[in-house]
Amino acid sequence: MKHIFYKEKIKLNRILLAVIIINAAVLIYTFFRVRVGIMLNEPSGIWLDIILRNGIFYSKVETALYVSALLLGVMQFYPEFERKRFRLSCHLPLNEYKMIFYTSLFGIIVLTVLWLIDMAGVVLLASQFFPIDIYRAIPLVMFYWYINSLIIYTFASSLTLEASWNVKLRLALMMAGCIWAFKMEVYNSSLSYAVTAFLFAVFYCFSIYFPALRFRKGL
């Protein structure tokens, strides 16, 4: 596994840097935006606005996360698709199901770490301006963003890896509907729903096997 991760890290060096920069920039921007808002208005009014209107003041982080997921998915698997480089990985003396799993797992781990950093950043930022009642409700909202980002990553990976444009289009039709299925715009939604959504996302992540095995075995 560590060797596959080594390869993926080399492959994604610049992309990793890019997504870190994008997310860091968005976090910093959000911090200053909130700070300005609090400075220029009565803070209790801002708090109330967030409470009454489910104000997701850190919504740009969601965009950054999804863009990162898309970039990771495409840039991780485009080199594999281009010139059928995936064949090299398939011939490594490693169980190919594991190889596919580890390759995808790398992207998922990167996304997870990114999300955790984003979440920590937003909670830390929010704790400077808001009471615990508000910032402890943030992780659950961002958890749904994480679920959606996993789906976007897998969608992008699967479509990128798929060698046939005909099948790419079909996969897009079949898998696209899930992308916004778990979008969440309110605080304190149901936890059981979040668990169901996460299980679905895990299930969805395994769909990378379809284009990978088509590549490998010529389905």
Partner: peptide, 21 residues
Amino acid sequence: MKLYSKYLIVLIAVFSFSIIM
């Protein structure tokens, strides 16, 4: 595994289509 991966896509598609159609 080939078969599982195909039917996994089918199940995902069923979920997806049941929302969008």
